[in-house]
Design a protein around this nucleic acid. Structure first.
Lengths: 157, 157
DNA sequence: ACATCTATATATAAAAT
DNA sequence: TATTTTATATATAGATG
């Protein structure tokens, strides 16, 4: 787009593609920030390079915007046709409790399991079990170590 | 940014703010599309105007990118903007499986449980158990009733 | 209010360091 | 390879229809 007009199509040269991705991603984040500032808007940008690297930007935070996206989906579904039966399962106390406990971390079990077949339900049950195991393990760890578990973030260097 | 350089700050005039929001949001979507095209990237932009209107763009789709965002929390990534607190726990296979199975119904267990205390973890484990029970019960019901439980969507007419 | 127009600010591809 | 520097394409604020 500059020294020479560039075509809007896949860049074949890998290194060039990477450079372009970085520059344009930065530009995107910058513009998003300006938009939010000038218009008191909220926005998030989620990007994944071809190599699989992920970069996110959000105002006021990625977290909150994504959460809002979900909330919005559930209320304003612009799904045409009937959906009276879509979200079906009443949220049991268990789910409420989870939301209560993990609220800040967005949890949403608001979909019914009715459309899953036996095999899938089995896989799902196993997956849930694993999560429970994780919770139990976490509890065990606290018991073992006293209780000062600091979060460890991998350095982005 | 044009006929006259504009300050990057909140626009007070409501109508002007709305116009700007629309123009800039469109620009953002366009740039995102170009980025994806040129760099074979995947990206999603989630925006909410001050009035609360929501606009999304995604390539290959908002859905898939957001899903990937959750899956990615496991590995790590660079995050810009304010993040009042972010995700820490690696997402186990179980969670990926759930996302895979219930993708359309958005599930996200990407929050760490590390900040919960023993008592809370215990409650959480119990809650998870209940959900698992529900899944198992659903499977049982299918077994009991043969297995052609088609979801019943109400007719539109 | 809504689309189109244009003058200019920004973004950015390629070059230079 | 990363950063900085241009030359120019794009985006867009304000104007006009």
């Amino acid at each position: 787009m500059v020294r020479r007009r560039v075509e809007i199509k896949k860049i074949e040269e890998k290194s060039k593609m990477y450079t372009t991705f970085t520059k344009r991603r930065q530009g995107l984040f910058k513009k998003t920030k300006v938009l939010c500032t000038m218009c008191e808007a909220e926005a998030a940008v989620l990007t994944f390079s071809k190599a699989g690297n992920a970069f996110f930007f959000g105002h006021p935070s990625v977290e909150s915007v994504v959460k809002r996206y979900f909330a919005d989906q559930s209320t304003n579904s612009e799904i045409e046709g009937n959906q009276d039966e879509f979200v079906v399962e009443p949220i049991p106390e268990a789910e409420k409790k989870i939301v209560e406990l993990m609220g800040k971390g967005r949890v949403a079990w608001d979909v019914g399991v009715r459309n899953l077949g036996l095999f899938e339900l089995d896989e799902l049950a196993a997956a849930i079990q694993e999560i429970k195991n994780k919770v139990v393990a976490q509890a065990q760890e606290i018991i073992n170590n006293g209780e000062d578990q600091e979060a460890e973030f991998g350095g982005t260097d």
